[in-house]
């Protein structure tokens, strides 16, 4: 009973939050409602008994990813309203619904036909974190290491891309220096 109440409550909240994210014209509203939706999603993981996944969801999404987005938004002009694509909303709605139903079919189809047996069964009486650790470091060790390398590559790429001219600080430079820099940049653009 409590599970049902929690499920419907968090389902409603998540859908509302994500709906705000995709429909609002303000970037800041979108960011905050997305963060709230991420935290509500972690509630589903806790209901489903995937405690470690829920904790990772909170740490990674509302911690790292949201901080990164907030940091990135400082570079962009977020006070300006976001312009929208002028498309036929009926087509968009129809295609989205069709795609979502396809996803359901993809998920449901093999389960109806096949008798599924668990590959790495969940053991009763053992904590979720312990189980996840054992499986992750035995059966999924190589994907885990590859994911670590991928994160390292992403970090290096992020630093290289965003860190250009980070050694220049506009607040510490004199006005003449800033003007010189701007003129040089304009020359580059014009040429």
């Amino acid at each position: 009973m409590f599970e049902a109440i929690a499920f419907y409550l968090f389902a409603f909240l998540t859908i509302v939050m994500f709906f705000i994210t995709v429909t609002t014209a303000q970037a800041l509203y979108a960011l905050t409602s997305l963060a709230a939706g991420m935290i509500f999603i972690s509630a589903f993981f806790f209901i489903l008994g995937a405690d470690f996944l829920g904790a990772v969801q909170i740490v990674v999404y509302s911690g790292a990813v949201m901080a990164l987005y907030a940091f990135g938004m400082m570079f962009f002009d977020t006070t300006r309203d976001v312009k929208e694509k002028k498309g036929n909303s009926l087509i968009i709605f129809g295609l989205s619904t069709l795609a979502a139903f396809l996803v359901v079919v993809i998920f449901v189809a093999p389960m109806v036909t096949d008798n599924i047996t668990a590959f790495y069964p969940i053991i009763e009486g053992v904590g979720n974190t312990q189980e996840v650790g054992v499986v992750l470091f035995t059966k999924y060790l190589i994907p885990f290491e590859v994911a670590a390398v991928m994160l390292l590559v992403a970090m290096v790429a992020g630093i290289v891309l965003a860190g250009k001219k980070m050694d220049l600080s506009l607040t510490e430079m004199s006005d003449a220096e800033i003007r010189d820099m701007r003129e040089e940049k304009n020359k580059k653009v014009l040429s």
Binding site: I15, F18, F19, V22, A27, M73, E84, S96, A99, A100
Partner: peptide, 20 residues
């Protein structure tokens, strides 16, 4: 629920022009 959220995300992908 997952399908509904996926549909919301798809609507967002199709109607947004701002890359963020």
């Amino acid at each position: 629920l997952s399908a509904i959220l996926f549909a919301i995300g798809l609507i967002g992908v199709m109607r947004r022009k701002n890359l963020l």
